[in-house]
């Protein structure tokens, strides 16, 4: 769907790249990196808005600069902090987008109500965009990216400014898009959103890709150890703590009343054994899972270039 092969953008004072990665069909690829790392430049090279100084970029197997029309025919883009045409209404903007995507008037008119409903803007159809809130403009930006049922969505911070309920709704909208055969490239700083939605990651730092692969493999790559968090119905007895400490792969155990934090080596996954021991001890297991901050830890470590 999208390939960058040693793509470099040299701004003179700053150089981004060489960047190489491929996005396969059906992926939801999270694109992570600190501000100024080159995420937007990469996205803009993919969209044919800027030319790579060297290397090559392909979108839908086409050069997005010389074959812009064909490369972008099945691609929708929602920019970060979208600057939409404030003098138009949402319906007018979507109509314009439909025309630019080559849809006829009838097809566009049929699609607009569904898109506005999908993003929760039906009742604002006729408002001028200048009167919409930031979150509504963000919703509209996603809607305009989805006009004409593209196969690929490139989303730059798609849920920024959107309320939590809206963000949850958008996640299900994006999952449905992928279930229907779509592919998503999504840049975001909201790690929980990336963790909840993405199947793979590309992490960029100082203009270079430091990780490209499955999301689940990113965490073990960039953390020295993982932490299993357990919540019991009551405080664990010494026997259980002793037994858990002896499980293969467990390096450290901290018990605080009914909560246990078990540090395990990154190459092992002793969750099955741990849960069996807890249940056999007769304790009530309320919850168990890897620590929620793991992606953040791994991301921070990948930026530092260390697993510590």
């Amino acid at each position: 769907m999208a390939t960058l092969d040693g793509a470099v953008k040299d701004y003179g004072s700053k150089r981004i790249g060489p960047i190489s990665f491929t996005v396969e069909s059906g992926e939801i690829m999270g694109f992570l990196g600190p501000n100024g790392s080159g995420k937007s430049t990469t996205i803009r090279m993919l969209l044919g808005l800027i030319r790579p100084t060297s290397g090559s970029v392909r979108l839908m197997q086409k050069d997005p600069i010389s074959q812009h029309e064909k490369a972008l025919a099945d691609v929708g883009y929602s920019p970060e902090l979208p600057n939409l045409q404030t003098f138009l209404s949402p319906a007018e903007l979507l109509t314009l987008t439909g025309r630019l995507r080559g849809l006829d008037r009838r097809a566009t008119e049929d699609e607009i109500p569904h898109l506005l409903e999908d993003v929760g803007l039906t009742e604002y159809e006729g408002y001028k965009i200048s009167r919409l809130s930031k979150g509504m403009v963000q919703r509209l930006s996603v809607a305009q990216a989805m006009v004409g049922a593209p196969k690929v969505l490139i989303l730059d911070e798609p849920t920024i400014g959107i309320d939590p309920a809206g963000a949850v709704h958008f996640r299900s909208l994006f999952r449905e898009f992928v279930r229907n055969g779509g592919t998503i490239v999504m840049s975001s700083h909201i790690l929980s959103e990336v963790e909840a939605l993405c199947t793979s990651l590309a992490v960029i730092h100082s203009g270079s890709v430091v990780y490209r692969g499955e999301l689940q493999k990113f965490i073990p790559t960039w953390v020295g150890s993982r932490t299993v968090s357990i919540e019991l119905g009551e405080a664990a007895d010494d026997g259980l703590i002793q037994a858990l400490s002896k499980v293969k792969g467990v390096t450290k155990l901290t018990a605080e009343k009914a909560n246990l934090l078990i540090e395990v080596s990154k190459d092992s996954d002793p969750r099955g054994e741990i849960s069996r021991l807890v249940i056999d001890s007769g304790a009530k297991l309320l919850s168990m899972g890897y620590s929620r901050d793991e992606l953040q830890d791994a991301y921070v470590n990948s930026m530092r270039g260390t697993t510590e």
Partner: peptide, 8 residues
Amino acid sequence: EVLLSKPV
């Protein structure tokens, strides 16, 4: 950029 990110 919004307009030119379309197949135009």
